[in-house]
Computed example of a mutant assay.
Amino acid sequence: MSMFSIFNVSGSAISSQSKRLNVVASNMANADAVAGPDGKAYKARNVVFQTVEFDAPESKGVTVSSITESDAPFKRTYAPDHPSADANGYVDQSNVNPVEEMVNMISASRSYQNNVEVMNTAKTLMLKTLQMGQ
């Protein structure tokens, strides 16, 4: 694997983790929402990653293949006076679990940071290699 492949691999991971962080931020913003943009309760979203091959067969990266909605049940709250209440007086709220989203956020941000560090280390190694020739 060439040194330039390292930048492709880490760059793809940084881009994918950035998208994951955006999805987590959207989920956290709607954690207590009663209605999403379509008027129904907001469904948590999850990022699905997929391996992608680069020019060199030994180097692979990652990309976001899709963003799926969670199948977890909605939180139901008894609030008969609420305008969104059903016939029994229950209101469906978002199925976002804030604890899981915080774990996702920490995981994604650490992965992002690690890949930035990989790129910085590769850059330093390349500069030192060039300095050896002087």
Rank of each mutant, 00 (worst) to 15 (best):
N114G: 03
R20L: 08
A35I: 09
M28H: 11
L130D: 04
S16K: 08
F49H: 09
S59V: 09
D32F: 15
K123C: 01
S107I: 07
S94L: 06
L125A: 05
Q93A: 04
P37A: 12
M1V: 11
A122M: 07
D55K: 14
A56M: 08
A79F: 07
K128P: 00
D55R: 14
V96I: 06
P37C: 02
A29V: 10
P57N: 06
S10D: 05
V91E: 04
V64K: 12
S16P: 03
M3K: 12
M132L: 10
M1F: 15
V34Y: 01
Y90S: 01
V91C: 04
S107Y: 13
T121N: 05
A79I: 06
N120Q: 10
N115D: 04
D81P: 01
V23T: 10
P83H: 13
F54Q: 00
E100F: 14
E101P: 00
P98W: 15
P98N: 04
N114D: 01
N22M: 09
S94M: 06
S16M: 09
R76D: 02
I6R: 11
N120E: 05
P80N: 07
K40I: 06
L21N: 08
N115L: 07
A35S: 09
M105Q: 11
S2A: 06
P37G: 07
Y78V: 04
G39P: 01
V9T: 10
A108N: 05
Y42E: 04
A41Q: 00
S84R: 13
Q17V: 07
S10P: 05
D81L: 11
N97Y: 04
G61D: 05
S16R: 08
V96S: 02
L21T: 11
D86L: 09
F49I: 03
A41T: 00
S15D: 07
K40Q: 13
N120P: 00
S65E: 09
N88K: 13
A72D: 06
T68C: 02
G11I: 01
A35P: 00
V48W: 14
S94W: 11
V62E: 03
Q93I: 04
A31V: 12
A25H: 13
P98I: 11
N46R: 14
V52R: 13
D86K: 13
V99K: 03
M28L: 15
M105E: 02
D86A: 08
K123G: 01
S107Q: 06
A79V: 02
M105W: 14
N114A: 08
S70D: 09
R110E: 02
